[in-house]
Amino acid sequence: MTVHEPEQPARHPDGSLAEGTRRAERSDHSSWNWLLLLPLLATLIPPLYNRVDPTLSDIPFFYWYQLAAIGIGVSTTLIVYVKSRG
């Protein structure tokens, strides 16, 4: 993690920023955010995984698929975090 010097913009006595020193409009917008929909699609449509076969070491698909889907959740949020790290 990089440590950077906080800027010290000119301010009014009440603590608000003076006009003109306001930082460039910040936002959380990023096309990477769309990735966050992936875990929802993967888990909120039960017909995708509501079956017994193929089993994985005797565990029905229904269970090991959803446990594996945790990995989808982790990797997508991780990617979005890394891409948006401030």
């Binding site: 966050l36 875990p39 929802l40 888990t43 889907a69 945790i70 989808i72 949020t77 979005v80």
Partner: peptide, 12 residues
Amino acid sequence: VPYTIVVYPIVF
């Protein structure tokens, strides 16, 4: 399980 998978991307 799906409940605690989807919650984090939703509230991120």
